[in-house]
Design a protein around this nucleic acid. Structure first.
Length: 563
DNA sequence: GTAGGGTTAG
């Protein structure tokens, strides 16, 4: 019974049994098809039994149908057992088992079976190749993908449009753009899908200019192509380009779908343009995207990133039964960004009544606890994570290190830190900052030395932490040395915050000559907070020339802003 | 004559 009315077919089958007619092989095959369509696992097992009883096993169509139905119901162990019993699996049987493994997310098994099939010399279907290539893309298995490419060439499948498109996409997703390009440049493999794959490949690795050139050359475009290009712009925060591209889409009267809307909302968030965001909200409402969770969550994210907590909250309640874990996380993030940390914890309590948290929930939650030094809740959440068997990845370890070091439990922090990946610079930063908070400047600097020994490359946050360590420990000379080291040895450009630290270092410890020298070398105009700090220090340590200069600067900037 | 699987792009 192919894609008709599976429920009715099953109903007829039961009726047939009651009337005393005996089903034959054809009946069973068609009934199994209906079972697969409606995921009727129980009835499938009964029919499996009857097939055995009737002596129909050995019929490859029935056997493949059983593999199919077990797989569709997600019981891969049974699907596999059935498959292994098939004496002479044909191309369809192999296709079914590969496809089902792919659907349950077991890409390794899918590839394993695929190669077994190739090894046995089965002339497979082109579909099976595509499925295997998707498996490679998902787990970035470039080696296996290349092998499949070799096989495809050998049996002349490379000419097949679907296989070549799948190959291109596999190379793109495995990060081998050149490999993808080589196939794409053959005229026979150019079609809408491969064009889109290749544009997406360039866009997703930040080569948006090349992506756009290719995009402009496309003979035809679908909404997926437009979205691929827009994804590149948004992923790399090229908001102006993204915005112009959206206007172009409007000019072209493109069909907008839920992916486009989500991307446009990301752009609104990136530009902090809540007015445009609200227009998109209205558009979604008018065009039937109101019950789409991903659009709903993108709206929440947009309101949150634009800082409009009221809008976030209202929309969150309006979403009501549409809400999922991502929606809750998004709401928590909005509150966290306003430092309403106690309320973040409250939201988590409410969330548990409705849906399960994930690792992002915990990262936000722990950061909120750290923000208000809620050590007790932080520990409870740590316990919750362990009790409920959530995998503690580096992000969570980082959050734990940061809360424990913030809440003066340096021992705990160190314990967690030791479990983590020693190559993760973020964790080192948390630990170093933790030491600073405990006025353990020397320990912080020692950690920095250890980090160097481990071969971990410091980033700008590390240097911020190091400079803080120098400020609180009073290591003025060292601070200057580290500041220079940042660019000379690590090729990191000092940011405003680093300059602020240096000014804090010199002013707090009254090292006026160095301060004067440093101010002279500033590559930009000092900010008002910097000037205020300098002026205060001059008053305290007596340096009328620099003090007057700072006061004058403040005055001129203020009058500029005032007019 | 009636039965099974179903591919690639955001």
């Amino acid at each position: 019974m192919p894609r008709g009315c599976p429920e009715e077919a099953l109903w007829l089958f039961l009726l047939m049994n009651r009337s005393g007619f005996f089903p034959n092989e054809v009946t069973f095959a068609s009934v199994l098809g209906s079972c697969a369509a409606v995921l009727e696992l129980c009835l499938s097992r009964q029919i499996h039994g009857r097939i055995v009883k009737c002596g129909f096993l050995g019929n490859v169509i029935l056997e493949s149908s059983l593999v199919d139905v077990y797989g569709k119901c997600g019981i891969m162990s049974e699907a596999r057992r059935m498959f292994d019993e098939v004496e002479n699996p044909n191309a369809v049987s192999w296709n079914v088992i590969v496809r089902r493994y792919l659907e349950v997310g077991d890409e390794e098994a899918a590839l394993c079976v695929f190669f077994e099939m190739i090894y046995k010399g089965v002339r497979s279907l082109t579909f099976t190749f595509s499925n295997a290539l998707v498996a490679c893309s998902r787990i970035s298995a470039l080696g296996e993908g290349t092998q499949i490419h070799g096989v495809a060439v050998k049996i002349n499948y490379e000419e097949d449009e679907v296989v070549s498109s799948s190959l291109i996409d596999m190379y793109v997703k495995c990060g081998n753009l050149d490999g993808a390009r080589k196939i794409f440049d053959q005229p026979s493999s150019k079609n809408l899908i491969s064009w889109t794959s290749i544009v997406s490949g360039y866009a997703m690795c930040g080569r948006t200019k090349e992506a756009r050139e290719l995009f402009n050359e496309m003979p035809e475009r679908s909404i997926v192509s437009w979205n691929a290009m827009l994804t590149g712009y948004t992923q790399f925060c090229q908001w102006e380009d993204a915005l112009n591209f959206i206007f172009l889409m409007i000019q072209h009267k493109c069909d907008v779908d839920h992916v486009t809307l989500g991307l446009i909302l990301n752009v609104c968030a990136g530009l902090s343009n809540v007015e445009f965001g609200k227009q998109v909200h209205g558009y979604s409402y008018r065009h039937g995207f109101y019950s789409n969770v991903s659009v709903g969550n993108a709206l929440l994210d947009m309101y949150g990133k634009c800082g409009c907590l009221r809008c976030s909250r209202i929309w969150f309640y309006q979403m009501s039964d549409l809400r999922d874990t991502i929606s809750w996380n998004s709401l928590m993030t909005s509150y966290a960004s306003h430092h309403l940390s106690q309320q973040v914890i409250t939201i988590f309590t409410d969330m548990q009544r409705e849906t399960a948290p994930n690792k992002y929930t915990f990262a936000t939650l722990l950061a909120a606890c750290a923000d208000i030094f809620a050590l007790k809740q932080g520990k409870q959440i740590h316990g919750f994570i362990i009790r409920n068997d959530y995998a503690i990845d580096d992000v969570l370890l980082g959050a734990l290190v940061s809360i424990y070091s913030k809440c003066h439990l340096l021992d705990y922090a160190l314990k967690v830190f030791k479990e983590a990946d020693p190559g993760d610079v973020v964790l080192w930063n948390s630990m170093i900052l933790g030491c600073c908070r405990h006025d353990k400047g020397m320990e912080a600097l020692q950690l920095f030395g250890l980090m160097k020994q481990e071969g971990v490359k410091p980033d700008h946050v590390t240097f911020l932490a190091i400079l803080h360590a120098c400020i609180c420990g009073g290591y003025v000379e060292l601070g200057g040395k580290y500041f220079d080291l940042m660019s000379s040895e690590y090729c990191l450009m000092a940011r405003l915050e680093h300059y602020e630290c240096m000014i804090e270092l010199y002013t707090r410890h009254g090292v006026m000559d160095e301060l004067k020298q440093f101010v002279k070398t500033l590559p930009f105009d000092p900010t008002i907070p910097m000037l205020t700090r300098i002026s205060d220090a001059c008053r305290k340590y007596g340096d009328s020339t620099l003090g007057k200069w700072a006061a004058k600067k403040i005055e001129s900037i203020s009058s500029c802003n005032g007019s």
